[in-house]
């Protein structure tokens, strides 16, 4: 079947899948950023309990596979009395997984802010929390944006796995169409192109824009 005919027939399914993928992406991003900030700051905390919790979270989620985490959260957590619908289990797993990688970016960026900035904050008697929020984090944010751009693309790719617990995202729809029509090249090829467009023409330009506006705010443009 020619590709335009294929698209004419299946575009509603593929569009639906794409919207679900976008929803998974946005929700997982929120979780990932929150976890990354918490664990990244936690790893730098003076309190060993907080530091230990951050390290355990980071090592467990970085040391195992996203797919293992997804299955564990979806199939095993119910045994502990926590049953999550597949949609929530999906973005939660992806967000927790990517957050553990993001935590290292956050930690690295905060540690890259020059020592003089910490001392200057100290010299004007700022409280540690205020110094972090007003002096250090804004500068660290500019440093961590480029690696976050790459990480968010990893996150988008990660969302494709939620199809394996039957969340009806783009990947899932491509699989369904393939199973019923055997038009594998068209189904999977179209999905590949859509993911590529999302990554390269939405996420990347958005992150570039964010980098530029952040640089402007820091007077570096």
């Amino acid at each position: 079947m020619p590709i335009w005919e294929f698209l004419q027939t299946y575009w509603p399914l593929l569009l639906n899948g794409t919207l679900i993928t976008c929803a998974q992406f946005l929700l997982a991003s929120v979780i990932a950023i929150a976890c990354a900030l918490a664990a990244g700051l936690g790893k730098l905390s003076g309190n060993w309990l907080i530091r230990g919790a951050a390290v355990i979270y980071i090592e467990i989620f970085r040391g195992t596979s996203l797919l293992v985490q997804l299955y564990w959260i979806f199939f095993v957590l119910p045994l502990f009395g926590l049953t999550l619908p597949s949609f929530i289990a999906g973005f939660l797993s992806v967000g927790l997984n990517v957050g553990s990688y993001g935590a290292e970016i956050v930690r690295g960026a905060i540690q890259s802010v020059p020592k003089g900035q910490w001392e200057a904050g100290y010299a004007i008697s700022m409280s540690p929390a205020k110094r972090m929020r007003r002096i250090i984090l804004p500068q660290a944010l500019a440093l961590m944006l480029p690696p976050w751009g790459n990480l968010l693309i990893e996150l988008l790719k990660g969302t494709a796995l939620v199809s394996l617990i039957s969340v009806a995202d783009l990947m899932f729809q491509a699989k369904q169409i393939n199973a019923s029509t055997f038009l594998s090249a068209q189904a999977f090829g179209t999905a590949l192109v859509v993911y590529y467009i999302l990554a390269r023409f939405l996420i990347t330009p958005f992150m570039r824009w964010l980098e530029r506006s952040m640089a402007r705010r820091l007077g570096r443009a």
Partner: peptide, 17 residues
């Protein structure tokens, strides 16, 4: 920029077509 799991499916299913 595209998911590995999708690439795996693509390679596996497109060949037979």
């Amino acid at each position: 920029s595209t998911p590995l799991v999708l690439q795996i499916f693509f390679v596996f299913y497109v060949g037979p077509q």
